[in-house]
């Protein structure tokens, strides 16, 4: 195979077949993977959850992952947040002419590995090649289907006053890793993206605590944006404790230098979970058993007061609003 992607790789002819066999089938193969027009799988019993997500992250490779891993985690986590076990994914690539075939292979390899780890099968795909300059490197869109195994009913609108708010690990690492990978600020720090598939811990929580009210994936906009969305959707207030929010020291250092709030930096492997307070210890115990969520912490609770606002208890005992989201911190983070 050539070492650069050319327009003919997206033409549907033998070059496309070569790419599918040499890169995609090799890395993503499973019993349903098809080069036919559609994949055919057995239908799961009960309700299904379905989601789709596009990925345009720049740079495509960063400490802790690449766009391929991210594109699997993103859709897997979205499905898991509805209490569904992800089963099947499809993926659609738009590749810039001239993209290195070896890089594409690295991306496909990461997708295969992440899919196997997440227990999900990539069953169909599409490849388009755009002329030089028409896309930046490579864009991926994934779509996925999952099955709701246990009778659960989760939504950002179900938070109740008194509930406990859990974040499943330190916040803002993905956004910070991307920011550093771009090397625009001349800052060096050892920060790895938190990008990870989270279906296993999420489903463990909902199966053992069916009373769980909310599970949300804190991606673009970070944990802060998710908290504000929950405030609005559930018509409640939220109180968090500044000292209880886990932040990696390197992330704190970088955000301190640049004047950014870690709660508003993207995560790609962190959930916000809201459970009635009597289940908070049990939830932490369940999450602690999984590597990706071992750093889970209770960061605050849902209140009846100051509806629609996130209030933060500061390190010196004062109370302040978490400024509402809205500022564009960093484009193209996922």
């Amino acid at each position: 195979m050539e070492d650069k992607i050319t327009l003919s790789h997206g033409s549907g002819g033998h070059k496309t077949s070569e790419l599918i066999a040499g890169i995609f089938k090799k890395n993503l193969d499973n019993e349903y993977f098809t080069a036919d027009d559609a994949a055919v799988m057995p239908a799961p019993e009960g309700k299904i959850a379905m989601s789709t997500d596009g990925f345009i992250v720049s740079p495509w490779k960063f400490p802790g992952g690449n766009i391929g891993k991210l594109s699997v985690c993103g859709t897997v986590n979205d499905i898991a947040c509805m209490g569904a076990r992800p089963l099947y994914l499809t993926c659609s690539y738009v590749i810039e002419e001239g993209f290195a075939v070896s890089d594409l292979e690295e991306i496909a390899k990461a997708m295969g590995e992440t899919a196997r780890k997440a227990g999900v099968k990539i069953v169909a795909g599409d490849t388009k090649v755009a002329g030089k300059g028409q896309v930046d490197g490579l864009f991926i869109t994934t779509a996925g289907v999952g099955v709701i195994e246990n009778e659960v009913n989760l939504s950002g609108a179900f938070a109740k006053p008194g509930d406990s708010i859990i974040v499943t690990g330190d916040v803002g690492r993905h956004g910070c890793a991307i920011l550093l990978a771009r090397d625009e600020y001349g800052i060096e720090a050892d920060v790895t993206s938190d990008c990870a598939p989270l279906a296993d811990p999420a489903l463990a929580v909902v199966s053992k605590i069916p009373e769980t009210h909310v599970i949300r994936d804190a991606t673009r906009g970070g944990v802060g944006t998710v908290l504000y969305e929950i405030c609005d959707a559930s018509d409640v207030g939220i109180e968090i404790v500044s000292d209880d929010i886990p932040v990696d020291p390197a992330v704190r250092g970088v955000t301190g230098l640049l004047g950014l709030e870690p709660l508003y930096l993207a995560c790609e492997g962190r959930l916000v979970i809201i459970v009635p307070s009597e289940f908070e210890d049990k939830a932490i115990e369940i999450l602690s058993a999984y590597e990706e969520t071992a750093g889970a912490k209770i960061i605050g609770r849902v209140t009846d007061d100051h509806k629609g606002k996130v209030v933060m208890k500061t390190s010196i005992g004062g109370m302040t609003f978490l400024p509402p989201p809205g500022k564009e911190l960093l484009p193209r983070i996922c």
Binding site: S315, G317, T320
Partner: peptide
Amino acid sequence: IFKLGIRQL
């Protein structure tokens, strides 16, 4: 001062 909530103290 605002971020730390000092005014209420």
